[in-house]
């Protein structure tokens, strides 16, 4: 008879999924689901953004750039925070999978930063009258791109994987301070860039159908990010760990 149930209760070993060996096949199962739903949502978002949404009262048809620019800018910041979180987790727990996740997130985050900068430039030229201005929003977003580049070049520069992980993790954490600066730059300083149309604290300053298209696109970008990051982390696991064992499991 059991009287002391507290100690003998069957426990799920959550840490099991923190090991690259068990995470590898799990990631493999998730990828197709994320990829397919990403494709569907992005197609639906494009349909709304390019075919259904009405003209804007100020910017005419030119405002449609918002459907790619804003989701890309959101994920440039969000993926940085996620990368910094995994890097920090790696430092605290000394968990290898966390470092691998951080490494896998960086290129996708950098790509979205570049997309946000380029589409922003293509939007700024006709509307503002300039491809680029050195205001606080644009400058801090450019710094974000440099932080991403710094992160993976530091990793590439150090031969010892373990030390490379640790050094780049510190850089990722230090750079995380730039994300709130980007986000609040339009409130803190005089900028040419306008304020946020969508925020957690205020009613959105957008017509419902435009907002719907943008949010669907954002969810699509999120699922795309998950799929491509999981693909990359699987490569990372294979490159760092004994390769044959993994592939046989799959």
């Amino acid at each position: 008879m059991e009287t002391n149930t507290g100690t003998n209760r069957p426990r799920i070993n959550w840490l099991k999924y923190a090991s690259p060996k068990t995470f590898y096949p799990l990631a493999g199962k998730l990828i197709p689901w994320c990829a397919v739903s990403a494709a569907v949502l992005i197609a639906y978002g494009l349909y709304i953004g390019l075919l259904v949404a009405p003209t804007d009262f100020q910017q005419g048809e030119g405002y449609r750039i918002i459907f790619v620019h804003v989701p890309a800018a959101w994920f440039s910041m969000f993926l940085y925070l996620l990368m910094a979180m995994y890097a920090g987790l790696g430092l605290v727990l000394n968990a290898r999978l966390s470092y691998m996740m951080a490494t896998a997130i960086a290129p996708t985050g950098a790509m979205f930063t570049l997309i946000a900068l380029v589409t922003g430039s293509l939007w700024g030229k006709p509307m503002w009258g300039a491809w680029w201005v050195w205001d606080a929003r644009l400058t801090s977003e450019l710094i974000l791109l440099f932080l991403y580049i710094g992160y993976f070049s530091l990793q590439a520069a150090i031969d010892d994987k373990n030390r490379a992980d640790k050094a780049s993790a510190v850089l990722a954490l230090v750079g995380a301070i730039n994300v709130p600066i980007i986000y609040f730059s339009v409130k803190w300083w005089n900028t040419l860039h306008q304020g946020a149309s969508v925020s957690l604290t205020q009613a959105p300053a957008m017509a419902a159908i435009m907002l719907k298209g943008m949010l669907i696109m954002a969810v699509g970008f999120w699922l795309y990010s998950i799929a491509v990051i999981l693909m990359r982390v699987r490569c990372e696991i294979l490159e760092r760990d004994s390769k044959t064992a993994m592939i046989r499991q799959d």
């Binding site: 503002w128 300039a130 306008q194």
Partner: peptide, 10 residues
């Protein structure tokens, strides 16, 4: 340069 606001509507 033109500075526009954050409102989008038909």
């Amino acid at each position: 340069l033109a500075k526009h606001d954050e409102n989008y509507m038909p």
